[in-house]
């Protein structure tokens, strides 16, 4: 706790880009391609290592294609843009020139998408992103990292540089509470167990980890324990270790800031549970009711679409009742 308290809260993109900047100073073969999307750290990178940066302008198709070309020439590439645009504006470019081509040619391209879920609160549904987990996990060779805090985000460049293949780094745009200290290394298993105990485990990713912790606190106040797991390596977590952790539970609650029942983390966990033959009742928390245009604070919007602390707490209580019936 003390170590965490000393960390100055920052946006995920700032800590990630700072890690990347330090790596770029050491390694000339790292290239950062942006679709006219910046940050103060990006300004520093552009000033200090200009030969390793290019701005393709507001042109996401070309962002991917130029990144693929650079990767074919041996660069380790990070492409940087707003989350819905870097995933869906250029989906076919990702499919053809990253997912397909990387099966034949060694390539290291990492897509940094800023603005997961509702994090661009006032910008509306074009800038918000509730489909990215679904569409990106459709690629069988895409690694998806969905960190829940700035410390986890800062770890990503190092991991991405150590392995080839296409990867999607799904970052929240807001400054979120710090969950992790600098140590221990949390990435080895692809998930981190924050709480354990009780009959039900909340398995959340990204911003929803914070919601899960609040739900757990509320339930604990009335004497109910639940487990909380942060799943940050969506497609690459250790399946055996997770199964071992889940073996003490009777129910699992998936929590994602994406559409429920549309092929996101809920579908991934359903597949996992069925494939492994796990005896777990599952409840899926995700955005309900389609696209919305209301304005409001994020936690208020979350209540409207069924993923806020109040609504989730109520649903978890319902699951517990059904388990004990």
């Amino acid at each position: 706790m003390d170590a965490i308290a000393t960390i100055q809260p920052k946006a995920m993109r700032d800590t990630l880009l700072l890690s990347l900047y330090e790596a770029m100073l050491r390694d000339n073969d790292i290239f950062l391609v942006t679709a006219d999307f910046g940050s103060p750290v990006m300004d520093k990178i552009r000033a200090d290592v200009p030969q390793q940066v290019v701005n393709v302008g507001i042109a996401e198709q070309n962002l991917i294609n130029v990144s693929a070309g650079l990767a074919l020439e041996g660069f380790k590439v990070f492409a940087y843009a707003i989350a819905p645009f870097i995933t869906m504006r250029c989906y076919e470019q990702i499919r053809v020139n990253l997912a397909l081509l990387s099966e034949v040619r060694p390539m290291n391209v990492n897509l940094i998408g800023v603005g997961a879920g509702y994090s661009y609160v006032v910008s509306g549904p074009t800038h918000q992103c509730y489909e990215d987990l679904t569409v990106m996990r459709a690629f069988p060779n895409m690694r998806i990292y969905s960190p829940a805090d700035q410390v986890a985000a800062a770890e990503l460049p190092g991991r991405c540089l150590s392995s080839d293949g296409p990867k999607y780094l799904r970052l929240d745009a807001q400054v979120l509470p710090v969950l992790y200290s600098e140590e221990p290394p949390i990435f080895a298993n692809g998930f981190h167990e924050h709480r354990n105990g009780g009959a039900v485990c909340l398995l959340a990713t990204g911003y929803m980890v914070h919601t899960a912790l609040k739900v757990a606190d509320r339930l604990m106040a009335s004497g109910i324990s639940v487990g909380v797991i942060d799943l940050f390596d969506i497609c690459g977590f250790s399946e055996d270790l997770l199964q071992s952790v889940l073996s003490s539970y009777r129910g699992i609650v998936t929590m994602e800031e994406g559409f429920r029942g549309r092929g996101g983390m809920d579908a991934m966990m359903f597949d996992y549970i069925v494939r492994r033959g796990l005896d777990l009742r599952m409840l899926n928390i995700g955005v309900e009711g389609g696209y919305r245009f209301e304005l409001g604070e994020r936690h208020v919007l979350h209540e409207h679409v069924g993923i806020g602390v109040e609504r989730v707490t109520e649903k978890v209580r319902g699951l517990m009742k059904s388990l004990s019936a």
């Binding site: 198709q61 294609n65 130029v66 070309g69 650079l70 074919l72 041996g74 470019q93 053809v96 020139n97």
Partner: peptide
Amino acid sequence: INGSLGHGAGVGAGMALG
């Protein structure tokens, strides 16, 4: 890969820049 059209110029530009 070039079965789908409109990809070569951008990838080629990336290679040329690299």
